[in-house]
Write a protein that binds this DNA or RNA. Structure first.
Lengths: 171, 171
DNA sequence: GCGAGGTTGTTACAGTGTATCACCCCGCGA
DNA sequence: TCGCGGGGTGATACACTGTAACAACCTCGC
């Protein structure tokens, strides 16, 4: 995907590895938590790493299962709490149309909107920002007399890689 | 809300009545079904009427409850089937961020995107279209090399009426 | 009449998310 | 040192959302 998209799925030749480097995410989290005086606990770190490490956006129950081991069970409710925390910090986003979670690839400015590009073939999700959309949406809302607090924009379709692969397959 | 917004919540002085005239919706449905040679059954009509008549977007279970009477129980699964049917026809939309359903106020062209304006105060949902957003989103997607199939855009905030009411209340 | 296809009823179940309470850990002040 | 308080986690239970599978029905056309 293009350079402007802060690609998280990189150039995957379908050898998906990770969508965001877990180490980098953890560093950002630590910095943020220190700044805000909140705790970055082991569970929160593990949940963040798991989200960052998965190729496709996991659900809360996926994460719970992935973090559980013979000696230690992580209940979904704990995962939800950690996810809420991470979303509060802007390190994770929720994909409403999938009930799934993605690591946030950006250092957002506050209130900045993002566009999620959800590939229906490979299941990957890319995240991008768009000033044009931002301004045109602002105009539309103003015309409607609506004061936005928060918005979600999710597009389902085919990412460039999958489209090319399909075209090659059909040839 | 503005004239361009195909307002469904009209000028509610919080005496909400209906978001779309059920009779009109039913007429459109009948026409559409005849044209496509599919059945517009009693259940489908009742579900459509119930969605059209409620001030705030109902969930599937709300509808099931509302349509059930002492002598006749409508199971959620039946409601889901009717809703799927109505969505197929473009008569109803699903609000992903709320797990709720709204009647579609437009006669859409196919593939036309809509913007949902969800008021967090009164819970009403308005629906509008925006050519500007459409084109700017198209540009963004093209730049990302992404082929869209379908997109959702939901904005949560305060509608004009509620904002004015709040301002008046604070004064 | 009778078969075929579509619609609905019914039950069961999977998936998603929240409420509640108990416990633990750690820091802080008496 | 003890007790206290607050945030975090564990555990259970539950509510809400959505789907699978199958039986019964209804209608339409032959």
């Amino acid at each position: 995907m293009g350079a402007a998209t802060h690609s998280r799925t990189h150039d995957h030749g379908h050898s998906h590895a990770c969508r965001a480097d877990p180490g980098t995410m953890v560093s950002r989290a630590e910095t943020l938590c220190r700044a805000r005086g909140v705790q970055f606990t082991a569970l929160r770190r593990e949940v963040l790493e798991a989200v960052a490490a998965s190729e496709r956006p996991p659900g809360a129950y996926d994460l719970a299962e992935r973090l559980s081991r013979p000696g230690r069970r992580v209940a979904p409710v704990s995962v939800y709490r950690a996810l809420d925390f991470l979303m509060e910090l802007g390190l994770v986003h929720r994909i409403a149309s999938r009930n799934a979670f993605v690591p946030c690839a950006h250092e957002h400015g506050a209130g900045e909107n993002v566009v999620f590009l959800i590939c229906r073939t490979c299941g990957g999700v890319d995240e991008t920002t768009s000033p044009e959309v931002e301004t045109s949406l602002g105009q539309t809302l103003a015309r409607a007399g609506f004061t936005p607090a928060h918005s979600i924009l999710e597009v389902e379709g085919d990412c460039g890689t999958c489209r090319r692969e399909r075209a090659a397959g059909e040839a």
